[in-house]
Design a protein around this nucleic acid. Structure first.
Lengths: 295, 295
DNA sequence: TTCTTTGATAGACAAAGACTATTAATTCTA
DNA sequence: TAGAATTAATAGTCTTTGTCTATCAAAGAA
């Protein structure tokens, strides 16, 4: 029963019988049979069938919601019992927005000291992808913007405020200032994240409301790439204060506060709303609460 | 998997492999094998084994909690989907404390008008039994005292306040009064519920704090029995106002308010805390909210 | 049209689940 | 304390379910 619900979840993820089957480690006919069996049990078609996958029926969507919960709980149960016996262990899958990646170590480090047998997998994803992965039980926790775009069935722990800095060489335009305005920043060619990233959209908005445009000379979905360009001293970027601090800037690179307005975004930990949480997730939330004040 | 969790729930209820198996509609070896299989999956003993059932291990208790949730959700899913197709149908299992039995009709009647395909089973149980049945998924809703003894994972809808009346014949002692005190009531021989009922414990407490004792000449666990005695005019009882009203008293029987204090107990609907609820339960909660003001 | 993609179907085989019968270990009872 | 009764585990058999490979049919794409 639960296996079949997992089939359905995989199908929702992959939107393709063959790939969903592969993801579940079974063959395509097996997955087809599983879904069909579910449909018989429920007495309704769950999947819109043409000669290819065409999405779910309304009933299918509903079953999917239940499946997420039931499958999630059954995994949580296993982890819970395993934790009772061996202490916390297993793998914690986290996804973070690129601008928050640098501070993930601030959580994982004290976590590992407390629970050395837990392994981590950390993905760099956009804020929308993170919510999707959470929804589909593909990650255990996300680190993303909170309080902006509406968020579904998740619990939230605020971590820190993102303040923006113009990161540039001291001898570049504006490089000698103690603070700059968004209007001024809009005149400088920048390295920025790609527009599918919420950070970029936020910066675009700030630049625009200051009467400017974003004129990126270089876009990337990788903060490392942006950062390495900035370190040459020949490129400028707008980055959150935290990441600039964490990665460490040396002369002649400066991180100059951008005021008017001192725009603020809150970054937080989001985990599936489940009571009780899995033990590893609960420990992550505890750790987040613990370190949040120091960030 | 879910079937095996159901085995475990049955075992928790029956505390006996044979009876649990019977309750599940399988033979005892099948249930034993199922439990064993669960234990292998989890890698821990769940049941304390002697030559007979000796309760659960700590891990077993934990699995049991998860099992209640997972099994409950999987049933809710089926009902949910069935309701999508055929409208509300199925059976709603309710348990109520005896003193609330008379007002159950105030909910079931409008409920049936709205959802004619839902069938009811109503049990008369003590308040403690009701919580136990709810916990074990044996009923869908309870009607009981709220805000007294602590209640577990349930949602609550307050229904009405229980005020007490001395029910007695006009020519019996105190029968001519407009109101009486608990101290006075404690002097009269009464028909009361048995002491395992919370209503009786409440009345005992009230009598005691008025300096009296409860001196029941007749005890029963059946309100009908108490009521039929009172109707003869030769017996007196202490009953909630509501039940006296609902069942209808005729001359010369009177229901006299008991003051000092005008003790109040709140009665409410309790349902398992599950989001979303099963459709039939959600409808019951809606109905309860609707009628509560008129009670 | 012809080829490719995608999901359903058929048939064989293995695994899991369930039943009956029996056994082993306690506990009760006479 | 011996014998009976109770309770759960085990053995052996059979049925059901699940999974695989191979193949087919339908619908797009070239």
């Amino acid at each position: 029963m639960i296996d079949k619900l997992e089939f359905l979840l995989a199908l929702a993820r992959e939107k393709h019988f063959g790939r969903a089957a592969e993801a579940c480690g079974v063959t395509q006919p097996t997955l087809s049979a599983g879904v069909k069996h579910l449909e018989e049990q429920m007495g309704v078609l769950l999947v819109k069938r043409g000669s290819r996958f065409q999405g779910f029926t309304p009933e299918g969507e509903r079953v999917l919601e239940w499946a997420r919960r039931i499958v999630g709980d059954s995994r949580a149960m296993r982890e819970d019992i395993s934790a009772l016996r061996h202490g916390l262990s297993g793998r914690l899958r986290i996804a973070a927005i690129p601008t928050a990646l640098a501070m993930v170590a601030a959580i994982t480090t004290p976590y590992r000291d407390r629970h050395p047998n837990v392994q981590f997998t950390v993905y760099s994803r956009t804020s929308l992808e993170i919510l999707d992965l959470l929804e589909n039980l593909e990650i255990d926790a996300g680190i993303t913007y909170i309080g902006n775009e509406p968020i579904g069935r998740v619990s939230i722990v605020p971590l820190y405020q993102e303040h923006y800095r113009l990161v540039t060489s001291a001898d570049a335009p504006l490089g000698d200032r103690d603070s700059v305005t968004w209007a001024e920043v809009s005149q400088v060619p920048l390295c920025l994240l790609t527009p599918d990233m919420q950070n970029r959209r936020i910066i675009n908005r700030l630049l625009k409301s200051a009467g400017g445009e974003s004129r990126p000379t270089l876009e990337s979905d990788s903060m490392i790439l942006l950062f390495s360009h900035v370190r040459t001293g020949r490129w400028a970027s707008v980055m959150p204060e935290k990441i600039a601090q964490t990665l460490g800037l040396s002369e002649p690179i400066r991180a100059i506060p951008i005021l008017q307005p001192d725009a603020v975004q809150t970054i937080g930990l989001v985990v599936p709303q489940r009571e009780p949480m899995t033990p590893t997730t609960a420990a992550l939330v505890a750790e987040a609460r613990r370190i949040a004040p120091s960030l």
